[in-house]
Write a protein that binds this DNA or RNA. Structure first.
Lengths: 153, 153
DNA sequence: AATAAAAATGTAATCATTACAATTTTTATT
DNA sequence: AATAAAAATTGTAATGATTACATTTTTATT
């Protein structure tokens, strides 16, 4: 099940992958990786920065970008372009989709199998990446909205 | 069939919609709309600007953004966030997906029905928008690559 | 400890987009 | 047609995410 993988397992598998690619397990890189494993809410580079800044004040944003690019390059992390001008990062690379709530801003994971989609039409194409996302209002926000309605009117 | 609609039909339906929403059919707005109807290759705001600048040199980028926002607001145009930090605009609002070639940069339309996807899991959610995109290399670029291989090696 | 390679840093630059105040155009009313 | 109000458009400056790059720090190897 997506998201149910214990953090340590994902983290240790990632470090193994880094070793395999001869990428050093520097403290900074591991911090970024750790952050991605802990925060599965698809953080932006800036959110990772803010998050780690408490712990490692000298960590620069450039290092975060560098590390994220490295992780994306070797396929350990995927980018999400749901919102314009805001790249989000997802350590869960297994086949799934997303739902972005336009009220609370949360990005939900959606269990969905994308491998089989559009196989025929794209038969001559080389597919590297499949992305499905929905936009709308999540259940919780819909309920809140109705609650507020009752109060206001 | 997607993309097979004659430009004039789509354009005139769009102007009707604008009227219906009490949005003036100014020359500038119509130029942007016309450009979107002619260029179905999912242009960016800048590409629209460059394209129209030849014809209407005094047209500002702000007006293009303003118009695009208006068109998106009333549902005549959809935004595409395939690439990071680059919003593309699509006048074809009918249900379909996209394929972005990472070699030539072209965005292909993919006939695919998205309405029925993830209905169950998102049953309590209000879905405004569904987006599916693929990344990879298109057929033509794959063939070119192989051609080059033969020459080089 | 000396050296070379890799990693990390801070600053400045870039690029898309937005904010906003000023100007021009259009519309409705007289 | 004159006028006032509303809407549209403009240019400039600001913002915010990301990248470029030169410099410094860390690490691995001798």
């Amino acid at each position: 099940m997506i998201g149910c993988d214990p953090m340590n397992s994902r983290y240790s598998r990632a470090t193994q992958q880094l070793k395999k690619h001869n990428i050093r397990l520097s403290n900074r890189r591991l911090k970024v990786l750790e952050c991605l494993c802990n925060k599965l809410d698809h953080p932006t580079a800036d959110q990772i920065f803010v998050n780690l800044h408490k712990e490692v004040p000298s960590l620069s944003k450039t290092t975060i970008y560098n590390t994220l690019h490295t992780l994306v390059e070797i396929g350990l992390v995927r980018t999400l372009n749901i919102e314009a001008n805001k790249t989000r990062y997802d350590i869960i690379t297994e086949d799934h989709g997303h739902f972005g709530c336009q009220t609370c801003g949360r990005i939900f994971n959606v269990n969905i199998e994308l491998e089989s989609l559009a196989k025929g039409e794209l038969s001559g194409f080389n597919i590297w990446e499949r992305n499905l996302y929905f936009k709308g209002i999540c259940q919780k926000c819909l309920l809140n909205k109705n609650k507020n309605r009752e109060v206001v009117y």
